[in-house]
Design a protein around this nucleic acid. Structure first.
Lengths: 352, 352
DNA sequence: AGTCATTGCACCATCGATTGTGCAAAAAAG
DNA sequence: CTTTTTTGCACAATCGATGGTGCAATGACT
């Protein structure tokens, strides 16, 4: 840090100091110097100077010139939810390991906001974009397309770009199967005893509901429509649905399928309103994994979606030459109650 | 979308189309046109063309020229944890409302990584940086200082830059008080019945431990060192500490204070290893709020840290002229067991 | 008509890098 | 000692926007 100056060093500064031209300095510092036949000694001199002055490239300038920024975006509906935040964590790790810079932003499930956020990302010349859980993936696709930006959908599929999503149908089948079996341990289960809460008009919800109904019909013989209670992805709405059921029946359904951990938060709100009841006999299935949700005072079966694999596949697809708008399914896993899975956190070194 | 071309429109394209010069186009599109005395009619023409062609400014170019990028960074230890992910959520909302672009990255509590990540952010000419939960805030400070980057510490204080942190001492006192009171409902509590798990060699842990010990000593009369079990911020280490206690005593302490939700995950791992015991009689205090953690099958008192206010204060400080390296405390709140708080998620519109 | 102020805009250097091209000097070949 | 090849680098255009400066045209005023 021989550097006393206030401003950051540029290739021009190093050019002065080394006596070489800016282009030579540039070549040395971006690694293309062998190709440009720069003498080894020159390169070393420049590198030494660069170190001494703490040179780091201005990536905006580089991005402007080369129209590649080294930024990779991940568009999320929300941050504060274990599914998406752990996706962000895996994403970051993978982007970094590729020598690029991750850029994670959320758009609050608002189609308009989604497009605006992506426009902004494009203005920073990001190189690739992962669109996770978008409300309007095809709308976002068009924005990307216009800018020639490579992108994939994660979690919710679009029709215009390749998509990598959970096998929601299969996951829902596993989950439904599991809660039915568990509930039957307590006695015969009638179709009216098994509900589904949450979900809205998106592909994931449809598939999950389909899987739920398939299994329910096959195992319990019937599948009344009333047992499906779509509430959107909102804790408040979900809480209201539980409350409505409770007011009508004086209890909760013996077993139910909750569409996501966000909806499961709605169950918590409902529980908070009934502090004197334990609800210890309900059986819950939640399509999402949360380490604390798994240990609630009643059995909670969960589905862990494999966001890590989705990201990995996403990169594989982006790296491929042809990118047909195919939907790839990633199998989720069923997590029995009271299970503590390890996550990306465990990769941290912990210095005492 | 009259635009058929592949590339994005630039001010030069609009300059050609409108017959005006690039600088005029630039002035019109960045709003400085009144100051530059551009005719209203000219401005309207250019704006019309810009709309038709879906023009958006190249923010890299703008940033390069004006050396202000509109990017605001948030450096996080990890994403997948409710405390930090909800901080990210508030951060995003506030940055957007200021017309800037949020950039959230994590550095895995690795001091080296922290500095490298910040170097990268600096290369993108970010305007301001929030450093949350950094292991080495002062190390990061130096990097920022060299680049003339405005920054504040959140959650963990540094000595060289202004810091906004939870009032950990007061929070720990509240939490300790609460679990002692609750435990005493089940009979007299001896000092050996009250433990603290988690935490490491950082300011937050020190203060929390201090608050815990203050209250414990005052209320229970004694405070043996053995009751403090620092485990770092690692679920695995924490689980091991619980396991060790359990092996020694055949049970868990009647009441204990857990340093963070990450450590609480360690408790989950411990529980998973003992599927046949319910541990229904323990009283837990956790310094962090998690909506599912609040409903575990035993009483869990939690502390909700007000990350939203911390971010708000952070901006206030960054906006101020003088920025002395003072530490500002934000009061957290005690959350009784079985409480479902609303969060940033509730701001979402939920379209059915 | 001549002077001066105002309006409306064009010109150009600049931010910090990348990259195609050209050209000396040194080395190899003849 | 030429001619050819290779080595090593400098030059200059360029990416897309910004903002200081200058200048013609118009209007106001004596």
């Amino acid at each position: 840090m021989t550097d006393i100056g206030k401003k950051k060093a540029t290739i021009y500064d190093l050019s002065m100091l080394s006596g070489a031209s800016p282009s030579t300095v540039s070549a040395v510092l971006n690694g293309s110097w062998r190709k440009r036949r720069i003498k080894e000694a020159t390169a070393q001199l420049i590198q030494k100077l660069a170190n001494e002055h703490g040179y780091t490239a201005n990536l905006q300038a580089r991005g402007l010139r080369s129209s590649r920024s080294g930024l990779v975006g991940l568009l999320l509906p929300v941050h504060d939810n274990r599914y998406f935040s752990s996706m962000a964590q895996s994403f970051e790790a993978q982007v970094r390991s590729r020598g690029q810079c991750p850029l994670v932003v959320s758009a609050c499930r608002d189609p308009e906001e989604e497009r605006k956020v992506v426009e902004t990302l494009i203005s920073y010349s990001i190189d690739e974009l992962f669109i996770a859980g978008a409300t309007d993936p095809d709308g976002v696709h068009k924005v990307c397309e216009k800018a020639g930006l490579k992108h994939v959908n994660i979690d919710l599929p679009g029709t215009l770009a390749p998509s990598i999503i959970s096998d929601n149908h299969e996951g829902a089948r596993m989950l439904t199967q599991a809660i039915i079996e568990r509930a039957q341990e307590d006695g015969p289960l009638s179709p009216d005893d098994l509900y589904l809460f949450g979900g809205r008009n998106d592909h994931a919800s449809h598939e999950r509901i389909r899987g739920f109904r398939d299994v329910k019909r096959a195992v319990l013989g019937a599948d009344p429509d009333i047992c499906i209670q779509p509430t959107g992805y909102s804790p408040a709405m979900t809480a209201r649905a539980f409350e409505a059921f409770y007011e009508g029946h004086g209890k909760l359904p013996r077993a139910f399928f909750v569409n996501s951990s966000i909806n499961l938060e709605g169950l918590m709100r409902f529980l908070a309103l009934h502090p004197h009841e334990t609800f210890a006999d309900i059986i819950v299935g939640c399509y999402d994994y949360d380490p604390f949700g798994s240990f609630l005072p009643f059995p909670v079966f969960m589905i862990r979606q494999d966001s890590e694999t989705m990201i990995t596949k996403g990169f594989a697809i982006l790296d491929a030459d042809r990118r047909p708008p195919i939907t790839h399914l990633v199998r989720p896993t069923l997590v029995p109650p009271r299970t503590a899975l390890t996550g990306p956190l465990d990769a941290l070194k912990d210095i005492e």
